[in-house]
């Protein structure tokens, strides 16, 4: 340092008049170097002082995630999910609908965690009240949104719990897995649905449930949300769960409970025997992806007595 200053001072002494071009170049270079060195020292200490400790595992987890940033996991993008997983240091309750089980097991290996052994899930719509079974009692011609109708009145049919049929769920689906049928009910594609849960959030009547996909995609579930008692569900819809309890009696595995006049089948206890399906007097219980039944005498026995 001192030699530089000596050289500089000599230059200044020698050229008392206007500086030459060479002088200007030298001054510039030297002063820039000085500023650079000073800044690097300052930055070094600032960086030490304000260093952010970040878990390196977050980056590694993020690399494994698909990077779609769809928000289907409920976190703000893939980075958000990675941060949440590392922070919780557990995979419980976290799932990547796009990457699926392979991604999650990859993350589990990286973090040395147990894999969440949750079975793949799928959205199911718990309403069977299509146009034939559930007659319309009023006509709505306002803004086409289930949320608006739900806030306004009970809807075009007499069922205050059932599907409103205007497709808020279909619009919310980012994977084109959900369409409205001609009868006005949501139809969910087995292949396309990634169980991200967007439709569950979008439905103002909470009809859609994320359910275990089941072995060979076979599922048995109650296709009704009507919690009313007495005659009103039957009047409103031909496929309503009346809370009669026949299915509960029929079930050998205690998989069915009735709460608020509505049956619910626990997918973990259900052994897919399908006895409840034929016992239901209104046909409110759905079976999906089973091979066609052999018409047997025992199913005839459970026809409703009218």
């Amino acid at each position: 340092m001192s030699t530089i200053y000596t050289a500089l001072s000599q230059c200044v002494i020698r050229n008392v008049g206007a500086p030459t071009v060479a002088d200007i170049i030298i001054y510039t270079a030297v002063s820039l170097c000085a500023i650079g060195i000073a800044s690097s020292v300052i930055l070094y200490f600032v960086a030490r002082k304000f260093r952010v400790e970040e878990d390196p595992r977050i980056d590694r987890v993020e690399e494994l995630l698909p990077g779609a940033n769809c928000g289907g996991c409920g976190q703000p993008g893939c980075r958000g999910l990675a941060e949440a997983i590392v922070k919780a240091n557990s995979l419980e309750g976290f799932t990547c609908p796009v990457g699926g089980a392979s991604t999650m097991s990859g993350i589990a290996t990286v973090l040395g965690l147990e894999i969440d052994t949750r079975l793949p899930r799928i959205a199911v719509a718990r309403c069977n009240g299509d146009a034939d079974r559930r007659p319309r009692s009023s006509h709505y011609d306002g803004y086409a949104s289930c949320a608006v109708v739900h806030a306004l009145y009970r809807g075009e049919t007499d069922c205050p719990f059932g599907c409103l049929g205007l497709g808020d769920c279909a619009r919310s689906c980012l994977f084109n897995a959900l369409d409205m049928s001609a009868g006005g009910l949501p139809v969910i594609s087995e292949e396309a649905c990634l169980a991200c849960g967007a439709c569950v959030q979008a439905c103002p009547r909470k009809i859609i449930e994320l359910r275990d996909k089941g072995p060979k995609s076979r599922r048995v579930f109650v296709g009704c949300m009507n919690r009313d008692r007495g005659a009103s569900p039957r009047k409103a819809c031909g496929a309503a769960c009346l809370g009669c309890g026949k299915c509960v009696k029929e079930c050998s595995f205690e998989a069915i409970v009735i709460e608020n006049n509505l049956a619910y089948i626990d997918p973990r206890k259900c052994k897919l025997c399908r006895k409840c399906v034929s016992s239901c007097p209104t046909g409110a219980i759905n079976e999906v992806n089973f091979p066609p039944r052999k018409v047997a005498l025992e199913t005839m026995k459970f026809e409703p007595e009218n």
Binding site: G142, Y143, S145, A147, V148, A151, L152
Partner: peptide
């Protein structure tokens, strides 16, 4: 346009 219908929902 059904302005109020949507605004009411947003308000809630």
């Amino acid at each position: 346009r059904s302005l109020l219908d949507v605004i009411r929902l947003g308000k809630s």
